[in-house]
Design a protein around this nucleic acid. Structure first.
Lengths: 160, 160
DNA sequence: TATTGTTATACTCTATAACTATA
DNA sequence: TATAGTTATAGAGTATAACAATA
């Protein structure tokens, strides 16, 4: 491991950076009275109308956890439950206008935070960093059998 | 916003990267039967012997939350409570051997995960990324009045 | 029979308020 | 009086197991 004074190791740097970024997101969600998981829920509903079961897969939580999560979001007027017309057992969850508004505001504030963070680099450095991060994410996704730039499946097309 | 096909925006890239890294940490902590907050607790105890109050400041949690957190860690044999010899009201929390072992294993696995992730870049790209990330973190820390490379305060020196 | 979703239950995590012991 | 820590209480978030309704 090379000893570069005044510089973190690659591993530490990436770890610390992830904490900084996640900390920004947590502060913004808290600022809007949302928890991280509630924000994630609203986030995945921005461009999908999933069933409870699909939410369970998207958020990697047990279906019983999704019941409680959606209950609380619904009680706050952020989402609605709609009976599926295709399957009498299924329930579809959709964002209300209020929910859409809330998640958009959190997302906007968060994006501004990251933009501010990145603004501490010069334009050239920022472009280089952006390209390397992209390359890293694409390679990582590929290694896990995912194509980051595949056509996004939407509106119920996400069935397994 | 420049349209670079097959490349994420700087903002999206950094956000996604942070999710990938945090996901790795979460999987490793779960693998060892620990929650993220339990792992953070053990992590801060690796090089400190804080009081309950200091833990409250380090983890940014209410003192009553620390009581429960330490209770559960203690019940699992990860930490011990020691009465302070300096202040009859204070309690010092220390890692047991088992706790040290657990947090070391999580940290090692996590570091290997990040190293594996970084290994998807060439050596030259990795060095460039590392330098840019360091520069970003240092600038960010400085903007928040912190010197990342200041002498680390330890063993009770962390009083505010 | 299998699947979708909810309910019952239990545990972790968190905060607020009230309390005890010490300074 | 002020501070350190715990207890009582309440609520969010999570999982497992059992259940009802539908396929």
């Amino acid at each position: 491991m090379p000893d570069r004074r005044g510089e973190l190791s690659s591993v530490d740097g990436l770890a610390q950076l992830s904490f900084v970024v996640q900390g920004m997101l947590e502060r913004r969600t808290a600022e809007w009275g949302l928890s991280m998981i509630q924000t994630r829920l609203l986030g995945v509903l921005r461009d999908r109308r999933p069933t409870m079961r699909e939410l369970s897969q998207l958020l990697e939580l047990d279906k019983s956890s999704i019941t409680g999560l959606v209950d609380r979001a619904q009680a706050r007027g952020m989402v609605e439950r709609i009976p599926s017309s295709e399957d009498g057992r299924a329930t579809i969850v959709v964002l209300t206008d209020e929910g859409h508004d809330a998640v958009s505001k959190v997302a906007d504030a968060f994006e501004r935070d990251i933009a501010t963070l990145l603004a501490r680099l010069t334009g050239a450095d920022r472009r280089t960093l952006s390209e390397l991060v992209s390359r890293l994410l694409v390679a990582h996704a590929r290694a896990h059998g995912v194509d980051l730039f595949a056509t996004v499946e939407r509106d119920g097309a996400a069935r397994g």
